[in-house]
Amino acid sequence: MNPLNIKMPKEKKVSYVINIFGVLAIFLLLVLVFESNFLGGRTTYIKGICTTACYTIIMVASLNLLTGFMGEFSLGHAGFMSVGAYSSAIVTNALIGSGIPNFFLFLIALIIGGFAAALTGIAVGIPALRLRGDYLAIVTVAFAEIIRVAFCNFEVTGNGKTMSGIARLSNFYWVFWVMVVCVTIMYMFVRSRFGRTVKAIREDYIAAAASGINVTFYKVLTFTISAFFAGVGGAIYAHYMTAMIPTNFNFMYSAEFLTQVIIGGSGSLTGSIIGATFLSALPEAMRQFSQYRMLAYSIVLVLVMIFRPGGIFGTYEFSLTRILKKLLAKIKQHKSDDKEKHS
């Protein structure tokens, strides 16, 4: 059931090509900005913000799979992130002297982080997903706390002190493409038969079960996929920060991701991208007020809930293809209008 093997209709192919070009254009623009030293001494700093934005996008989009598409709240996403972060850091620390090129080491770290988090996702998901709504949210909070306390006490994770000296493998150019790949896979998942099945479960689980859908299986599957990408996000985080402490992954961090999902629009992956980008760049842009960040979040959240209860994007997906099509139609219209004028 590999989504890549599905024969794509022509329109879909065109849309993929357009989107690849769009992503490439953004990438080249950023490369140009960073390499031309246009920003002078602030280049490294801005690059750092962009890296942060990239892994935040992965985190928020993966959480959106749960809240937006499966319709269940998780308040423990930072817990999965920490599992990914610590497991990948432990593995790269062990492998660092062995002559593996950095790029492959980074890939290994991502995969280890992802799979470790996914396994935890299965372990938590099987018992927890029998619960729904508020109860599930409580279990996920508890899970994240257990993980945090456990990592505070394990020797390999630094005994509660900062775990430092992790190799700095994340660089913006790699992280950008990792983000693109992750979001693309999530997008394909949402658009696939699996995605539609998960949506059906959200809408009515009794009817879904009556149609022959194994509700628990699909819920655990989605939970696991979401956890996998959270783990990948964590691996990027660990190899970007190079030092971390379990308390970084506290309840507030999970709540921050959830806020970004809701502000961006739960059910819209592009909404998550926009939400994550702005909300991770915002506190940096207003550094002097950064301790008021959560305050600002809550105000923004209240405003969004009043004026756009579904989030900024709602369930709407931003589509480059659609915009291009509209533009082309307009140009054509214009040309034919001109012709009429001339004739």
Binding site: K199, E203, A210, G212, I213
Partner: peptide, 24 residues
């Protein structure tokens, strides 16, 4: 049996209160 397996035995259930998928 799991509820989702019952339908494979050619037994279909139309749940009470028109359980359709409203957003599809």
């Amino acid at each position: 049996m799991d509820p989702s397996k019952i339908i494979q035995l050619k037994m279909a259930h139309v749940p009470e209160g028109r359980h359709i998928f409203p957003d599809m």
